[in-house]
């Protein structure tokens, strides 16, 4: 089996998990072969990574946060941070609404949530697809 050219971490997102379940159903119904499912997932890994790149300008939601950095480590080119008592501010300019909540094309929607614990796993985007 070849090593992945793209990270497989987005398979755990809702869209990735749903795709995987759908592929399982297709295999069980003998509509496709497992090899095709693997190719499809490899394509999914590539496409989702490329589309989430900043320069593609597709993902417009932004997230700002502050909290207490509890633990962090850097291993195999992957940073992991665990932050406690976190205030997260989310801005979604793609929603095209004003900050007051009504519809307009002039501003973005901001919302804030507070969570006890927040885990960030950050992989090097340059490596994905370049290897």
């Amino acid at each position: 089996m070849s090593a992945p050219a793209y990270y497989e971490l987005y398979r755990r997102s809702t869209i990735g998990a749903t795709l995987t379940d759908a592929l399982d159903t297709l295999i069980s119904d003998e509509k496709i072969q497992p090899q095709l499912a693997m190719r499809i997932l490899a394509n999914f890994d590539r496409i989702i990574s490329e589309n989430l790149k900043l320069e593609n300008n597709i993902a417009k939601s932004r997230l700002t946060f502050k909290g207490v950095l509890s633990t962090y480590n850097f291993c195999d080119d992957v940073w992991t941070f665990i932050i406690k008592n976190v205030l997260i501010k989310m801005s979604d300019v793609s929603a095209g609404s004003t900050e007051g909540g009504s519809s307009s094309s002039n501003s973005s929607v901001d919302s804030e949530i507070t969570v006890d614990k927040f885990k960030i796993v950050a992989c090097n985007s340059r490596r994905a697809g370049d290897i």
Partner: peptide, 10 residues
């Protein structure tokens, strides 16, 4: 039991 494969790259 479901005759499926692990999709993860080894």
């Amino acid at each position: 039991t479901n005759n499926l494969v692990d999709y993860k790259s080894k």
